[in-house]
Amino acid sequence: MVSLSPADLQAINLSLQVAVTATILALPAGFGVAYLLALTDIRGKAMLEGIVNLPLVLPPVVTGYLLLLLFGRHGWLGHLLGLFDIRIIFTLRGAVIASAVVGFPLLVRSIRIGLEGIDRQYIQASRTLGAKWWDTLFTITIPLCSRAILAGTTLMFARSLGEFGATIVLAGNMPGVTQTIPLAIYQYTSTPGGDSMALSLCLVSILLSFVVLLIGEGANRRLARR
């Protein structure tokens, strides 16, 4: 029987909050970067692609540490945000940023493949029919790669739910503040007698990820039928 303590419920709640916020924040930026990479001839594409994909190949702890340097009190972004009294490290914002950065390449990769698969003549046809570029973007480009956007979003959301390494470095592991499911499990496994509690949260984690993928697949089928 799975039994969950109030702290566990809080961790589940925080995990969902972090994953939802990170995904929503990353989606427009992810689409923008994928668009630049797939459909434009800008200079420095290889560089941009390299930077976007770095979190995919770096150990998450390293990503977390780099973010810590960037957002720390002496980091240039941290310093800037400090002027507006906004703190990132050891806050839920930090957990969101860590998840967003680590999941970003998965999102960009999926959307980019979708965009590259669009026959450019659809876009050209739309433009010659009098649609401005943003009109074409919303009526042709996005609908034609909606399945790729969905796949990327699902992947990113699932990845955010499981984010550990970068989060623990940037946001710490504070129950009720930044402790998400993976961090809670980590804490249980390093506490004597915490095994059954860890197992319960593991089951919740599996269930959540499974539900997310299931919903994604269901939506994908609906889009495919359209």
């Binding site: 659809y122 050209q124 433009r127 010659t128 009098g130 649609a131 401005k132 609908p143 034609l144």
Partner: peptide, 29 residues
């Protein structure tokens, strides 16, 4: 830009928008 030229194109393979009905395609422009 193409949208300001009023020069229409009929493509070799029609390129009707696959996510729209015939009617929506027809009235797009």
């Amino acid at each position: 830009p193409p949208d300001a030229r009023r020069v229409g194109v009929v493509f070799q393979h029609a390129h009707l928008f696959p996510h729209m009905s015939v009617k929506k395609n027809l009235f797009y422009g």
